[in-house]
Simulated assay, not measured.
Amino acid sequence: MQTTHTYDVLISEVGPRDGLQSVARTMATADKFAWIDALVAAGLQEIEVGSFVSPKLLPQMADTADVVRHARGHAGVTIMALVPNLRGAQAAMQAGVHKITMPISASRAHSLANVRKTPEEMVDEVRQIAALRDDIAPGVHIEAGISTAFGCTLQGLVPEDEVIALAVACVEAGVDECGLSDTTGMANPAQVRRLFTRLIAQLGDRAGAAHMHNTRGLGLANCLAAHEAGTRTFDASLAGLGGCPYAPGASGNVVTEDLVFMFEAMGIRTGVDLARLIAAREPLALGLPGEPLYGMTPLAGLPKGFAPQHYR
C-alpha cells in the first residue's frame, strides 16, 4: 500500500467493481487485466478490482481472485475488493487484497435487499471480519461505506443521526475507516457538507471516502462539498460506469475523468495523468463494445493552456 506520487486528494477508482457489476455483460478476464493496467499507468493509486460475492448473484465478479492476483503485480497500488460478509472477506484476504470495503446500509430496507441482513447484523459481521483479519491477515485495511447515507429509493429519508451512529458503531466494531455513500444519487451539496462535517468531527482521521453518484447531475458538486468539509478520498468510476442493482434508478457513478479535471483545474493534486486516464477508456471500450461511456472532459477535451499539477 505504498504510494508513488504526492497527492492532495486520493482518487479511488471503483469502475472494475462498481461499474462492471452494474452492466449486464461480463467483461473477459484478460480485458479486465488490460483495463486495470491502463488505470495504473494513468497514476491511480487505489483500485477496487472486484467483489467477493456469489457468482450466482453477480457472475461479472466470478474471476475476482484472479484479477486481484494480477493487480497485485503493480507496485505502489492499493488493491481493494468489496465483501458483503465473512465468507467473502476470508476469500479476499486469501487472494491477497490490501484493503477490503464493506457496504453497511443505513436504510433497513436497502440493507435487507442488498445483503439480507439488518444494519445491526452487519455491524456484527464487521466485528467478525475484523477478528478474522487480526488472525490471518493483520496487514489488511478494512473500510466501511455507509450506503444510502443520503436517502434511499426503497425507504425514503434516512435520518442523519442514524447515519452517524452507524458509522461510529462500525469503527467501534473494528474498521479502520468509514465513509459515506450516496448509493441512490439523492444527495445535495448542503446535505453532503453537513454530514461529512459531522462524520469528521466524530471519527477524525478514521473518516473515509466520499462515494457519490451523478444520478441527478450533482456528483461533482457533492464531491466539492465533501472536500470543503475536509474529505480527502473520493471514489469514482472511469466513464461513469456503475450504480446499484438493489437501488432502482441509482445509475451513474461520478466520472473519474471529470473529477480529476475538476481538482487539477483547482490546483488540487490527484497524482493522476489526465491524458493517460482518458486513454484508459480504450481498453474499457474494447472489453465492453457498445457499452455507453460517459464524461464531459473526454468529450470536450482539455482547455487550451490547461496546466495540471506536477506529478511527484
Results as ranks from 00 to 15, higher is better:
Val53His: 00
Gly88Cys: 00
Ala38Lys: 02
Gly15Lys: 04
Asp66Ala: 15
Val53Leu: 00
Pro159Tyr: 06
Glu228Tyr: 04
Asp161Ser: 15
Ala91Trp: 06
Thr153Ile: 12
Leu274Val: 08
Gly219Phe: 02
Ala34Cys: 06
Gly217Ile: 00
Ala280Pro: 10
Gly287Tyr: 08
Pro308Gly: 07
Gly96Thr: 03
Ala38Glu: 01
His227Gly: 14
Asp18Cys: 10
His70Asn: 01
Val254Trp: 00
Pro103Gln: 01
Gln90Met: 09
Arg72Glu: 05
Gly151Lys: 06
Arg116Lys: 15
Val68Trp: 04
Asn85Trp: 10
Lys32Gln: 11
Gln191Asp: 15
Gly19Leu: 13
Asp235Ile: 04
Gln202Lys: 12
Gly185Trp: 02
Val67Gln: 06
Ala169Phe: 12
Gly230Thr: 10
Ala75Arg: 10
Leu195Pro: 10
Val53Cys: 01
Met27Glu: 03
Asp135Glu: 15
Arg127Lys: 14
Glu282Ser: 13
Ala131Pro: 05
Leu44Pro: 00
Gly19His: 08
Pro303Trp: 09
Ala207Asp: 04
Val115Tyr: 03
Ala209His: 13
Leu166Met: 07
Leu20Ile: 11
Thr231Lys: 08
Lys56Glu: 07
Glu257Phe: 09
Gln45Pro: 03
Ser12His: 14
Ile104Val: 15
Leu299Glu: 10
Ala280Asn: 13
Arg216Trp: 08
Ala106Met: 03
Gly301Ala: 03
Gln21Asn: 06
Arg206Leu: 12
Ala239Met: 13
Val260Asn: 01
Met296Asn: 11
Ala30Asp: 15
Pro138Arg: 00
Ser54Asp: 04
Pro289Tyr: 08
Leu259Lys: 04
Leu259Arg: 00
Ile146Trp: 06
Phe306Cys: 01
Leu259Ile: 05
Gly208Asn: 08
Thr6Val: 09
Leu277Lys: 14
Leu299Gln: 11
Ala92Met: 03
Glu291Ser: 11
Ala65Ile: 00
Leu58Trp: 00
Ala300Asp: 07
Asn85Thr: 10
Ala280Asp: 11
Gly156Pro: 04
Ala95Tyr: 01
Thr6Gln: 14
Leu112Thr: 12
Ala91Asp: 11
Ile47Arg: 02
Val255Gln: 04
Thr183Glu: 14
Met93Ile: 01
Leu195Met: 14
Met102Ser: 13
Arg276Glu: 14
Gly156Leu: 05
Met80Cys: 14
Thr64Ser: 07
Met1Arg: 11
Val97His: 07
Asp273Trp: 05
Arg198Ala: 15
Ala34Asp: 06
Tyr7Phe: 15
Asn214Asp: 15
His70Gln: 02
Arg72Asp: 08
Pro103Gly: 00
Gly305Asn: 07
Gly156Glu: 08
Gly156Thr: 11
Arg133Ser: 07
Val23Ala: 15
Ala169Gly: 10
Thr101Trp: 06
